[in-house]
Nucleic acid binder design. Structure first.
Lengths: 262, 262
DNA sequence: GTCTCTATTTCGTGG
DNA sequence: CCACGAAGTAGAGAC
């Protein structure tokens, strides 16, 4: 079980003393209370009094959550230094970051609860179906994109940027493959076009160079532009790739994992 | 003061019953405990047992925070439906979203604390120095960009997209202004170049059309490309703009607000 | 440190 | 609802 100290009601003063004095090393602090907030740095923001949840982690990251919305209303990433101190009637939390130079300044006028916890969490976060994983899988199974396609290099660096897959087709034409793990937009088409133009400059007009955009879907505008520029689209099915890579971990058996992919 | 109920130690069962039975309407729930998590949807992830903080808001948003890092390790935005229920030894939290189809499934084997709160927060979040604000300010003060510059239109829609400022200079040449509120990259240069090419096609080769990229800074590659394409860079100072727009709210007087901008 | 690109990006806005 | 671009985007990887 985690070490947790809860300060509420009569004990709040003790909690305030604890978090404002002692360094909160290795501890995660949650404060619930009525506060106002100012942020200055890359932008400037102001938020007047309201009841919110403040989370301060031992690495210096700070989050302020309102009772709605997925995103924190104010925050500071982990490179910050955090000071907690009393000023007049208010408990103040000040998180300053030097690069970029910015600060979050919180004043609390009412505190409902303080939780100081020491959490142990050493598990490794494992992700599947990232763009890198899909790219590497397609690199070793280029026939999924097109029969007879062979991969020459992965993440090939040419001047304008990195080509996901640099391949040749059955007729030995160069094929530039751009992979998107979700809906391809006009930007993706432009990106692919840039690569192809660069290669055409390099190889001259006699070398036939093809461009294939691989994605589970593509926007209408993107597809029009793609066709206009003489390039091609290949749909991939993330579900099928996931099956082929072969995962077996399913804990919640109420629904198949594959129902949720793409 | 906010309405807060804390369940810890002996009371945990009561808390579990509360959050798994009743709809948690208008309430924000925090659970601290040892859990494992699976996510499936746009991607797939697994996280084995560890002590974490789970936050569930009344709008259906879900966040799981590890004791480190600014970002939640797993989450679900506010369009989700959330079910809390017991299965065997575990308390389960299941958040499902339909568009895109995805789910987060959490199993808790030890719970340290449950907090159920009703937070009141109606304050308006106010942001300054957004790209829109900077753009509108420069639109009405184009002389900051260049002496004699006049704004013709803001957010002008031409085929490839929207031009931030469409101006004419002292010599009545068309000037396309692209504004970035931080470091301009090669993409910004390409964007500007696209607009200018479109206008050149429209107005023919005799009309002189200039492009100005306005940003607090620019990357080396971007600047090289800009010069190569015959366009110009103007540095803007966010601090100066903020001063000119004229803000006065400064609560924490220990440091001037302007120290923290840009 | 600078620059570029991805992200379970999220979020807004305009068509 | 789809498409596209901004964000205090954050974070990773290459150079």
């Amino acid at each position: 079980m985690a070490k947790i100290r809860v300060y509420v009601g009569q004990n709040l003063d003790k909690g305030i003393k604890l978090i404002s004095g002692e360094a909160i090393e290795k501890k995660t602090v949650i404060i619930i209370g009525n506060c106002r907030i100012q942020y200055e740095g890359r932008g400037v923001s102001r938020l007047d009094w309201g009841e919110r949840i403040i989370m301060i982690k031992s690495d210096g990251s700070l989050l302020v959550h309102r009772p709605f919305g997925y995103l924190p209303v104010n925050w500071q990433p982990e490179t910050s230094t955090i000071h907690i101190f009393s000023r007049g009637e208010y408990l103040c939390v000040k998180a300053v970051r030097s690069k970029p130079r910015e600060r979050v300044f919180i004043e609390l006028k009412d505190i409902d609860m303080i939780v100081v916890s020491e959490l142990e969490d050493n598990a490794q976060f494992i992700e599947y179906l990232s763009e890198a994983e899909i790219r590497d899988f397609l690199a070793s199974h280029p026939e999924i994109i097109e029969k007879g396609l062979r991969t020459i290099s992965v993440e090939k660096n040419i001047e304008p940027g990195f080509i996901d897959l640099y391949c040749v087709d059955e007729k030995d034409r160069i094929v530039v493959v751009e992979i998107k793990r979700h809906t391809a937009t006009v930007n993706a088409v432009k990106q692919l076009s840039t690569y192809i133009n660069a290669l055409r400059r390099e190889y001259g007009p006699n070398r036939n160079i093809r461009g294939i955009l691989v994605a589970p879907s593509i926007t209408k505008n993107a597809h029009e532009l793609l066709v206009k520029l003489g390039m091609e689209y290949r749909r991939i099915d993330l579900k099928a790739i996931y099956e082929k890579i072969g995962r077996t971990i399913v804990r919640d058996k109420s629904k198949s994992i594959l129902e949720y992919i793409e």
